[in-house]
């Protein structure tokens, strides 16, 4: 096995036709989705600390008669047999009717609809910044790995990768928000409503936090991928043929080296929304992560299930998208395997 193949372990195409392959993958994702839905349904119900606790203090609950308890349970559907609850759940997922929040009576679909764009804006901006900076540094670090700078950036990447997100967020608030007062430290919009400048200003610190803590990983991955392609036989042969350095990197190294990075980033995007919980909490950013954290803290089952569903869906969709876009980058995956 040549080093190039070894460096691309995630080549997803086996010796099957491409359509069969995609069909298989979609089925696999459907299966994952169904299991995730089931878990999503069961998890809050299986955990101790039931939803009745939400309706008052333990003393107040103790005063409730059995009838009153049953009435609350029926009203919110907790009293039905479990399989009926599950069917109800599936039906409501398909019709996007996710119920109303137990804590503030809001429609769950609407609450998620309000929060999702903010998270997409936040996560989208930071993934673009992270990818551009991380890959650029990684490619340079891979090519110059034997020079002093290369080693330094690797250590730098490890340090940056190790900073806890919430701590960096605090430091940024202290310096940029409180000391120098050049960037707002909470919320997504300013007092004068939704203006482009206001949106951008409120994005600066959260995006900076996500980007700084994110580049290390992408940098290290890109760098090691570059290294394994640079030492591969085809590239060494091309080097021996006297192909100049710039052309060698552009034509022979970048594409195979960036393939696994592409897969990594696609998979990461799905998780970033969940990973933004911390940043959204510290900066009081009105996104999905903050909504999720609030829902769990308040034991708000409908809202919790709704946000989990969306977070899980994002991961599955990004997995699928990674599979679908892979052949665009890797010609070997386009030929249906008979290379």
């Amino acid at each position: 096995m040549s080093a190039i193949q070894a460096s691309v372990p995630a080549t997803p195409v086996a010796r099957r036709g491409r359509l069969t392959f995609l069909g298989g993958r979609v089925l696999e994702y459907l299966a994952v989705l169904i299991v995730a839905l089931t878990l999503n349904f069961l998890l809050p119900r299986a955990l101790p600390g039931g939803p009745l606790k939400l309706f008052g203090s333990p003393e107040a609950l103790a005063r409730l008669t059995a009838e009153e308890r049953a009435q609350i349970a029926t009203e919110y559907g907790f009293g039905d047999p479990i399989h009926l609850q599950f069917l109800d759940y599936l039906h409501s997922v398909v019709t996007l009717d996710l119920g109303t929040s137990l804590s503030d009576g809001r429609d769950v679909t609407a609450a998620i609809g309000d929060a999702l764009p903010w998270t997409l804006l936040l996560v989208g901006t930071s993934i673009v910044a992270t990818t551009l900076i991380g890959i650029t540094l990684g490619v340079i670090g891979g090519i110059r790995r034997r020079e002093g700078k290369g080693a330094f950036t690797l250590t730098g990447a490890i340090v940056v990768d190790s900073i806890p997100q919430f701590w960096l967020a605090m430091l940024l608030i202290v310096w940029f928000g409180v000391k120098w007062q050049i960037a707002p430290t909470f919320g997504a919009t300013g007092p004068d409503g939704t203006t482009v400048a206001g949106l951008a200003q409120h994005l600066v610190l959260p995006v900076a936090t996500l980007t700084i803590t994110g580049i290390g990983y992408i940098f290290m991955y890109t760098r090691s991928s570059m290294l394994s392609v640079l030492t591969s036989e085809p590239v060494q042969h091309a080097h021996a043929r006297g192909i100049p350095r710039g052309r060698l990197v552009r034509r022979h190294v970048l594409r195979p080296a960036l393939l696994p990075v592409h897969t990594l980033i696609m998979l990461d995007i799905g998780f970033l929304a969940a990973g933004a919980i911390v940043v959204e909490t510290v900066f009081a950013y009105p996104g999905l992560g903050r909504l999720t954290f609030g829902a769990i803290a308040a034991r708000d089952y409908p809202l919790m299930q709704g946000t989990f569903l969306v977070l899980t869906l994002m991961v599955v969709l990004m997995n699928l998208l990674a599979d679908l876009t892979y052949p665009l980058l890797d010609p070997r995956a386009r030929t249906g395997g008979d290379r």
Binding site: A36, L43, F271, A273, A274, I277, T292, I296, V315
Partner: peptide
Amino acid sequence: LVLPELVLFIL
């Protein structure tokens, strides 16, 4: 691996 770790931890 599809279930977000941090959410599971918080939960």
